[in-house]
Design a protein around this nucleic acid. Structure first.
Lengths: 124, 124
DNA sequence: GTCGTTGCAAAGCCTTTGCAGGGAA
DNA sequence: TTCCCTGCAAAGGCTTTGCAACGAC
């Protein structure tokens, strides 16, 4: 039976607090504020379980590597700020649905990764 | 001074022959047909040099990892067939340019990764 | 003959796994 | 008490690097 450990609780809390895609080390660092003994392997294992359970979604980001976000969100895409290195979620979809793929190809999924500078960094 | 080795020539030939994004192991396997002693480290080093020289472009593909393609091509995106695992280049851009990012954000680059089944695999 | 390049093997990252001890139920 | 989960350390992939031998010029 699945056990609800303090480590697991800490990791879930991290995702409730920070509402944006997070990398393993971000989860580890934030989780250790609550459970200082938290181990990297434990984070990896829990993230994997949470993805398998449908609780989280893993994103393979071209610049940031594997990121995790809560899966309850609607379809959206990601913006990477190369100044602060954060990844933002942008609601909605910017894909022109017509004539995206050649005849004969079956389009099933798509991912759009935007990058540039975020509003906070641009203001400075 | 830069030396034009047989290994380098073999790698360049691979990209001339296969006109689609290739992974390191694909380049290695194809290159060994011409230079059997070709080493993986040599491929890595040459691909890196060729990217630095602007001859190739590296793509971080969510499913396939790092791929390399000739950089002379016009802006385009990629379609991954999850049946044959090949990545195709699709000419043109399917990004709706208007209202892609929130006010204040500066959009500089974007990548679109499409996936599904290619025409060849769909026919079977 | 020079000295950049190669092959090999070792070492670095990131991620996964084996195992004994610890803690949730 | 049971047995799943954790922490630790070792081991896997992929990629980079150190070094002696090689080969392009």
């Amino acid at each position: 039976m699945k056990r609800y450990t303090t480590q697991r609780a800490a990791i879930e809390q991290v995702f409730r607090r920070h509402d944006r895609p997070l990398g393993v080390l971000e989860v580890l660092a934030a989780g250790r504020k609550k459970v200082p003994s938290l181990n990297q392997a434990t984070v990896y294992r829990n993230l994997k379980d949470m993805v398998a359970a449908g609780q989280l979604k893993a994103i393979n980001h071209p610049q940031r590597g594997t990121l995790y976000e809560r899966s309850e969100k609607a379809h959206h895409h990601h913006f990477h700020c190369h100044s602060c290195n954060r990844v933002y979620e942008l609601p909605g979809c910017a894909l022109k649905q017509e004539k995206v793929v050649p005849d004969g190809f079956v389009l099933e999924n798509h991912e759009i990764f935007l990058s540039g500078i975020c509003d906070q960094c641009a203001r400075q």
